[in-house]
């Protein structure tokens, strides 16, 4: 019951802050360099932060499941929920980035180190979610996905070096040169901070909802199994009688 109340409050807080971000973001004045597109700063960096946060939560929950001292189904559910919400936010990060990149850089996509890493991150998350979908047995699925989740994370530093060297060896283009953060004024920063609060609350709310659904699915499976065993047993008794 208490969980439901917290859920409800989280949802309301997320909705209110999201609406505030929307209203304030749309009222920001267009900038000289980026015109109307500068307003994307109210949502794009906060979405990116949540995308990394979701990846991190998935990794830590996977690790906690793998450690015998902290092994619990809760961590498995949390990792599953975080990965799915992470897919949504990582996709949104790439989409809002492309919408901003097209008028600013003239292209939807550049092979920048950070963009490439984000795309790989989305692929890793999609693989993780797909792996969970096809596994049948709950225990086996928890083990397999915890190992997959963690082994996706240990490769991130190697990925980081590879794409950074790749881009710096070829050409010096980087987000830093055209990033909007270099000449921001207070109004923009304030709206972006509201955006950070809004996206983090939205993440927490989605995570908690998804976690609950996962728990319900598991209990449904348990109940289903118990019912099936009970039915078979009754059939056996009736056959004897």
């Amino acid at each position: 019951m208490r969980g439901r109340i917290i859920d409800g409050l989280l949802g309301i807080a997320a909705a209110v802050t999201l609406a505030t971000t929307l209203l304030l973001g749309l009222r920001l004045p267009p900038t000289q360099e980026q015109d109307e597109y500068a307003r994307l700063i109210a949502v794009h960096p906060p979405i990116a932060w949540v995308a990394y946060l979701a990846f991190g939560v998935m990794a830590i929950a996977s690790l906690l499941w793998l450690l015998p001292a902290t092994r619990s189904r809760r961590w498995d559910r949390l990792a599953a929920a975080s990965a799915e919400v992470g897919v949504v936010f990582t996709s949104l990060m790439l989409i809002t980035g492309a919408i901003w990149g097209r008028p600013t850089w003239g292209v939807w996509w550049v092979w920048d180190a950070r963009l490439t890493l984000s795309a790989l991150m989305l692929a890793l998350l999609l693989g993780y979610v797909a792996l969970r979908r096809v596994s049948v047995d709950t225990e086996r699925r928890a083990l397999v996905s915890a190992i997959a989740g963690l082994s996706a994370v240990v490769v991130i530093p190697v990925n980081h070096f590879a794409v950074t060297w790749w881009r710096t060896l070829h050409q010096g283009r980087s987000l830093a040169q055209v990033a909007p953060s270099s000449q921001l004024d207070g109004e923009y920063i304030a709206v972006m901070l509201v955006g950070f609060v809004a996206m983090t609350l939205t993440f927490a709310w989605l995570l908690s909802r998804r976690y609950r659904v996962e728990a319900l699915v598991e209990s449904l499976e348990d109940v289903g199994l118990a019912t099936a065993i009970e039915e078979r047993r009754r059939e056996g008794v009736e056959a004897f009688a």
């Binding site: 890793l124 693989g127 996706a152 590879a162």
Partner: peptide, 28 residues
């Protein structure tokens, strides 16, 4: 990843999705 995907039914399509992003830095 071969042994990760070994138990599941659709491993033929799952393995490339799991493995290719992991080995992307190797290809690079």
């Amino acid at each position: 990843y071969g042994v990760l995907a070994a138990g599941v039914r659709v491993r033929e399509t799952l393995l490339p999705l799991l493995l290719l992003p992991i080995v992307a830095p190797v290809v690079l």
